[in-house]
Design a protein around this nucleic acid. Sequence first.
DNA 1: CGCATTTGACCAGCGC
DNA 2: GCGCTGGTCAAATGCG
Length: 183
Amino acid sequence: MENYPTIFQASSSTPAASHLSMLNMANSHAGAEFQDQKLNQYLGLMPPRTETPISFMNNNIVAQRNNLGDAGTAEVKSDKKYKVEKKPRKPKFAFQTRSQVDILDDGYRWRKYGQKAVKNNRFPRSYYRCTHQGCNVKKQVQRLSKDEEIVVTTYEGQHSHPMQKSMENFEHILSQMQIYNSC
DNA sequence: CGCATTTGACCAGCGC
DNA sequence: GCGCTGGTCAAATGCG
């Protein structure tokens, strides 16, 4: 399995706290300052396969990215029906959250299009696509086998539309993160 | 009825 | 070349 970087480690130990609006920071034009100035800067310039965590916001939240490239928008059609992305692929952003539930409400609507068993993991990986027309943002959701409270959500692409839910969720998540990080 | 989910099949990439 | 694995498709099914 590819080792996607973990952008955030957050906690939402109750289902009611599973809103993750901060995802928008890394994937849309919603305009959080640190997205452009810090996150993109770091993420765009990280050397290949760098494992060094980069801290921002506070010392307990790390951002990492592998070098998947950013020229991956080109797609080719195989001789059959499948659309296959060329490599290098789009940048991916992984969020690691501690949650009882797999489905994190990040303010966007997602449609599940696949599920696969993962090697060395007793939990399947689920594949989701943003249902907004023209927006082909994808995400994968996977629960860790060694710690089944940890849910890794991997985002690919940028939303081309505003999120459909209010930013209240974001504040809620931020407070959750602060609680988590103070532990 | 419309939309979301499930699930088996298919395809591509990679390592051996 | 072959097998394994990840990613996607699409028909069937479920649900409000």
